[in-house]
């Protein structure tokens, strides 16, 4: 599953990032790395969402959300 399939209030663990090269690097610099836990704070139907990771709140668009592969954090 990707972050796009996630729901508000749930936590997920990142398993891979599949977006354009420069964006991938920027995401990684912001702390989106494999095994990092992300919590979706709120999301819109169109896929834009606010997530929290490493104590930082970030708004990301649909394309980025669809490019971040995750699994349930409890798994």
């Amino acid at each position: 599953m990707t972050l796009f399939d996630g729901s508000s209030g749930s936590e997920y663990r990142i398993t891979g990032i599949y977006v354009a090269y420069t964006i991938e690097r920027r995401l990684e610099a912001l702390g989106f790395n494999e095994d990092t836990v992300v919590r979706i704070l709120t999301r819109k139907k169109n896929g834009a969402m606010i997530v929290k990771l490493r104590g930082t709140r970030l708004a990301i668009g649909k394309l980025i959300a669809m490019g971040i592969e995750v699994k349930e954090a409890s798994q």
Partner: peptide, 12 residues
């Protein structure tokens, strides 16, 4: 094509 790349920090 739809190329929306929203990535922005929401500060405290």
């Amino acid at each position: 094509k739809d190329k929306d790349i929203l990535l922005i920090e929401l500060p405290e």
